[in-house]
């Protein structure tokens, strides 16, 4: 049987033989649960009893839930504040670090260190930084120079940026490394040509460096937007007693899903939220992939 196949067909057979394991793995670990989650979103289930059909009930509930819209807005705030800030910061750092020779490796390590640190540990340390006197680092500093206290976490306006700051900081190291790789990949001949023509640094930056960094920038934007849309561990650990608080000011979609599923045991409603998150991620990724392809 196998003997009679053409070389091309044999190649296909072998390819599938090797692919069988990952395909099976993905089928069982990824695609089956995804399909199941979509199914559960049309049902009511409290983990203990039978699943009963609910039709679109969970989605209607979601649409009419003011908390969901608040959370939806928060999720995009994380994305819209977090992505540009981390992009600009990491580019500025990478741009200057690239020109620096003195202690280059050491500095690069310092920037990369937070990326390797556990998010849980980092979130708790920052949570304590943000406390009021007598234990909070920032507020103690303020108090020692006679400035009044700032409520970082116990405030509906300051809490979200306060939670976002360590998340941006944690991701910075990775983005700096990617940017530096991108900078190194730009052929030096362009810069030499620019030098011969005698153009200034601003023109070099905007006409050579940035346009040639486009694939890198798109990659980092895609990567960090997905990260900010899925933000959970920083928020959860910095607000454990009042998850996503105060008054849902910091609650992202993933935290709402977790809360609905594992505190409320309302799996159907949680699955509906998951499907919405999945759709958002899908749309964002498709748009960004399109941008990549137009290259």
């Amino acid at each position: 049987m196998y003997r009679n196949l053409t070389i091309r067909q044999k190649q296909i057979v072998w390819a599938w033989a090797f692919l069988a394991l990952p395909v099976l793995f993905y089928g069982v670990i990824r695609f089956y649960p995804t399909g199941n989650a979509i199914l559960i979103s049309f049902q009511n289930w409290n983990l203990l009893g039978d699943r009963t059909w609910a039709g679109l009930e969970n989605y209607q509930k979601l649409w009419n839930d003011p908390v969901f819209w608040k959370v939806f807005a928060n999720t995009f705030l994380y994305l819209l504040i977090g992505t540009p800030i981390s992009l600009i910061l990491s580019f500025v750092i990478a741009y200057h670090l690239d020109k620096l020779r003195f202690m280059h490796g050491f500095l690069r390590m310092l920037y990369f260190l937070p990326f390797m640190t556990s998010a849980v540990a980092m979130a708790w340390v920052w949570r304590w930084f943000y406390q009021g006197v007598p234990i909070g680092l920032f507020n103690n500093l303020l108090a020692s120079v006679g400035i009044s206290q700032i409520e970082f976490l116990n405030s509906t306006t300051n809490a979200l940026p306060a939670v976002l700051a360590p998340a941006v900081w944690a991701g910075l190291g990775f983005q700096v490394i990617i940017f530096m790789a991108g900078l190194r990949a730009i052929p030096t001949s362009y810069y030499e040509a620019a030098k011969i023509d005698g153009v200034g640094w601003w023109t070099v930056l905007t006409q050579i460096t940035l346009p040639l960094l486009r694939p890198t920038i798109v990659f980092i934007v895609v990567f960090s937007s997905i990260g900010f849309l899925r933000i959970f561990d920083h928020v959860f650990n910095m607000t454990t007693n009042n998850p996503g608080g105060p008054l849902n000011a910091t609650k992202p979609l993933v935290l709402m899903i977790y809360d609905t599923a594992f505190n409320g045991f309302d799996m159907g409603y949680a699955a509906a939220q998951t499907v919405v998150l999945f759709t958002i991620l899908l749309i964002v990724s498709l748009i960004q992939l399109r941008l990549l392809r137009s290259d």
């Binding site: 405030s155 509906t156 608080g245 105060p246 008054l247 809360d259 409320g264 045991f265």
Partner: peptide
């Protein structure tokens, strides 16, 4: 749902204190 019911009282106080 104890945690949800607790959360409502947490928010009851927050609305007074923060808003």
């Amino acid at each position: 749902n104890e945690s949800a019911q607790r959360q409502l009282l947490v928010e009851m106080v927050e609305r007074m204190q923060l808003e």
